[in-house]
Computed example of a mutant assay.
Amino acid sequence: MDNNKYDLMKLIQVRFPRMSKGQKLIAEYILKHYDKAAFMTAAKLGNTVGVSESTVVRFANELGFSGYPKLQVALQELIKNKLTSVQRIEISSDFISEENALKSVLKADMENIRATLEKINNNTFDRVVNEIFNAKRIYIVGFRSSQALADFLGFYLGLILDNVRVVSNGVSDIFEQLLRVGEGDMVIGIGFPRYSSRTVEALKFAKSKNAKVVAVTDSLLSPLASNSDLTLIAQSNMASFVDSLVAPLSVINALIVAVGLREKENISETFKTLENIWEEYNIYTYRSRGSNDI
């Protein structure tokens, strides 16, 4: 049986018309929530969709698996090997149309935040905040679509702390930017499927230099997580060919706020100074006081 994700998803769709009513319920759930189904027992999956455990076993057989455990392994592989953009378009078109795009995507992002709230470990989150204050230097790494998240985290942490650096694609290679990383430093790697190999390599390098490595990613099975000391989980299930980064951004927001609350007195003075600078150099559009313009 080919465990390739695209083949498995398409196989479910091809076999769908001849499935029983109960099997169709399982198929629909897996197509939408394969990340959850991957770690459910046959009994749990059956209970979730409202069918018997034996129906779940027959569903696995219908797909060509010798038993449900084999299907479960294949589903877990799906998490590691995400679809290409072209494959995402083909599969997501079955669930999202131009007419319902707004509602479907917003609902999917809401579900990602809800699932993240259930999955994320509060103790790990608190430990990450503590490690941020213990670190001599903080490097933030994230490429491809995760670059936006890395820049956002770097921008705000840089306003609060003076030891933050975002590693970026530029004139110098990422390893040159991480040249002096070592024990006592922290490297925060941000990455979601399809994982950037450069981010994974950067975290491996940092770990080899005995730096504290934190991953912000979608699963403990992520290659970022396997190279980290602490992992913050944020769900990023795709709603289309566009990566869903709403939940990861929310976790990063929480991280910034938690750090800021500890430095409340210091950042108050910092932002007073910044407000004066922003006004003096017209960084933002300010309305003149007393103006009656609307």
Rank of each mutant, 00 (worst) to 15 (best):
1 M>N: 03
6 Y>E: 07
7 D>A: 14
10 K>W: 02
10 K>Y: 04
17 P>W: 04
17 P>A: 09
23 Q>H: 09
29 Y>D: 10
29 Y>W: 02
31 L>R: 04
36 K>L: 15
40 M>C: 01
43 A>Q: 09
44 K>I: 03
44 K>C: 05
46 G>F: 01
47 N>Y: 09
48 T>C: 07
50 G>I: 04
53 E>S: 03
56 V>L: 08
57 V>R: 14
57 V>F: 08
58 R>N: 13
60 A>W: 06
61 N>V: 11
65 F>N: 03
66 S>L: 13
67 G>R: 14
69 P>D: 03
69 P>M: 11
70 K>M: 09
71 L>E: 06
78 L>I: 02
79 I>M: 05
82 K>H: 12
87 Q>L: 02
92 S>P: 07
95 F>E: 13
96 I>H: 07
96 I>S: 02
99 E>R: 14
100 N>T: 10
100 N>S: 07
100 N>L: 07
104 S>N: 08
107 K>I: 01
111 E>R: 04
113 I>E: 04
115 A>Y: 12
117 L>E: 13
119 K>D: 13
126 D>W: 06
130 N>L: 13
130 N>I: 05
130 N>T: 15
135 A>P: 14
136 K>T: 11
138 I>D: 09
139 Y>I: 06
140 I>Q: 01
143 F>D: 04
144 R>T: 04
144 R>D: 07
150 A>T: 02
156 Y>R: 08
160 I>P: 03
163 N>A: 02
164 V>I: 15
164 V>G: 10
167 V>D: 12
169 N>D: 07
171 V>H: 01
173 D>H: 15
173 D>Q: 06
178 L>A: 08
182 G>Y: 07
183 E>C: 03
184 G>I: 13
186 M>E: 12
186 M>L: 15
188 I>H: 09
189 G>K: 01
191 G>D: 05
197 S>D: 11
199 T>R: 05
210 N>A: 11
214 V>C: 10
215 A>Y: 05
217 T>S: 13
223 P>L: 09
223 P>S: 11
226 S>L: 08
229 D>C: 10
229 D>H: 13
233 I>R: 11
233 I>N: 14
237 N>C: 00
239 A>M: 00
239 A>C: 01
240 S>C: 03
240 S>D: 05
241 F>A: 14
243 D>F: 00
245 L>G: 00
246 V>G: 07
249 L>G: 12
249 L>T: 15
250 S>M: 04
262 R>D: 00
264 K>G: 00
265 E>F: 01
266 N>I: 05
267 I>P: 01
274 L>Y: 09
275 E>Y: 00
277 I>K: 10
278 W>M: 03
281 Y>H: 13
286 Y>P: 00
287 R>W: 02
287 R>I: 09
292 N>Q: 04
292 N>C: 09
293 D>W: 05
293 D>E: 14
